[in-house]
């Protein structure tokens, strides 16, 4: 009988207070607690983490890269969202 597998988890690490959690990679573990302990051993041997999030890979949902062009298109031509679009005199301070 084939051995039952440990599920795959995605690991997110906050390296320092004030920073976001960043995706560090993945690992296999039997449950969330083991995933957190394994993540500590694999990804923070040099104190690279103050906080760890683990999410089972099957629960990560992603946008489809094949559709990226059309999906992100609405933002593509809205240059007026950028401050440089607005032409104002140099004498104007603090803006």
């Amino acid at each position: 009988m084939p051995e039952q597998q440990w599920p795959l988890w995605e690991i997110f690490i906050r390296s320092k207070q004030g920073l976001d959690h960043k995706h560090a990679g993945s690992l296999h573990a039997a449950d969330a607690q083991m995933a957190i302990e394994n993540a500590r051993d694999v990804y923070t041997r040099r104190m690279e983490g103050v906080s760890i999030w683990v999410v089972e890979s099957k629960y990560v949902h992603a946008s489809n890269p094949d559709d990226a062009g059309s999906f992100f298109d609405p933002a593509n031509d809205k240059v007026y969202r950028h401050p440089t679009f607005y032409d104002l005199p140099d004498e104007l301070k603090h803006m």
């Binding site: 051995e3 039952q4 440990w6 573990a29 039997a30 449950d31 083991m34």
Partner: peptide, 14 residues
């Protein structure tokens, strides 16, 4: 192998 199985059994129990 027994460690891998035990870990899954332990996770179920927890």
């Amino acid at each position: 192998a027994w460690v891998r199985e035990a870990a899954l059994a332990h996770a179920e129990k927890r």
